[in-house]
């Protein structure tokens, strides 16, 4: 059983709502990213999603676009992100998921990426612009290295495709709780519940719901319908606000502990 599956099994056994945290790797720079993910782990994140900065993040809203620009300007690349993770992995107990667009992985070379990701201790990969129909080569290569392939589900996803994602994916399914790109919202959308109900009717695979969540009450609300809540843009915003300040790591940890309240 993969580290991701074990983590979700443990959450279910305890009846707890998991917290999946997203940060863009290399924002504000790779050294501080290493510090950030250690703090996420210490603050109790159940899964750490590490975003690979890409020049054309077409599924992301302004918050993550800006983070991506900062990370690229600070020199982050996919190989360097994996190096950073490799050097940090022993200090982190939470499973780590690489969150990327397809092109950086293709450019690195799929086989080489899989080898390096394995060495760095990557537990899962989610490729934003690689739906199951295009993702067979990735999935096979990841499976061969014991890395989970995580697929996205959206309010527009049909029942047939929910089944396909559940059959082909592993670890957990990532439900996009509303239409649109990533970004912070005030409230949890009704479409989140509806999607969760449709997914649960098709599969027993763990489900994390995200997109727009930023507060402990959002996490609690989502926990009624899903195994875990994903917090991304809101966390990236905290990093943006404190990027250059000495208290960055403390602020990150405080924010995540607050979410877990």
């Amino acid at each position: 059983m993969s580290r991701i599956s074990e983590r979700f099994k443990a959450l279910r056994a305890k009846g707890e709502t998991g917290l999946v945290t997203y940060v863009t790797a290399g924002d504000p720079d790779l050294e501080r990213s290493a510090g950030i993910i250690k703090r996420l782990d210490r603050a109790g994140a159940d899964v750490i999603e590490l975003g690979v900065p890409f020049s054309d993040p077409l599924a992301d809203g302004p918050v993550i676009q800006r983070a991506t620009e900062r990370a690229l300007a600070a020199g982050a690349t996919l190989p360097k992100v994996l190096d950073m993770l490799a050097a940090t992995r022993a200090d982190i107990s939470a499973p780590v998921v690489i969150f990327s667009y397809a092109n950086p992985i293709l450019r690195m070379g799929l086989d080489y990426f899989v080898r390096e990701a394995g060495k760095a201790g990557v537990d899962g990969v989610l490729t934003l612009d690689m739906p199951p129909e295009e993702g067979e080569a990735f999935r096979t290569a990841f499976a061969g290295a014991g890395i989970d392939t995580i697929f996205l589900l959206s309010p527009t996803t049909t029942v047939d495709r929910i089944r396909k994602a559940a059959a082909l994916g592993s670890g957990f399914l990532y439900g996009i709780s509303r239409l649109g790109v990533t970004g912070v919202r005030e409230t949890v959308n009704d479409s989140a519940r509806e999607l969760a109900e449709r997914v649960k009717a098709e599969t027993a695979m763990p489900l994390a719901l995200g997109f727009g969540l930023s507060r402990p009450e959002h996490v609690k609300t989502v926990g009624q319908w899903a195994d875990a809540a994903v917090v991304g843009s809101a966390l990236v915003k905290v990093i943006a606000e404190h990027g250059q300040a000495p208290g960055l790591l403390d602020e990150v940890e405080r924010y995540v502990r607050w979410l877990r309240n």
Partner: peptide, 19 residues
């Protein structure tokens, strides 16, 4: 699947697959 030899396809975020 929309391929011309090795080129083409449909590499889109999940939300756009159905539309």
């Amino acid at each position: 699947r929309g391929y011309y030899g090795a080129f083409g396809g449909r590499f889109v975020p999940e939300t756009l697959v159905a539309p």
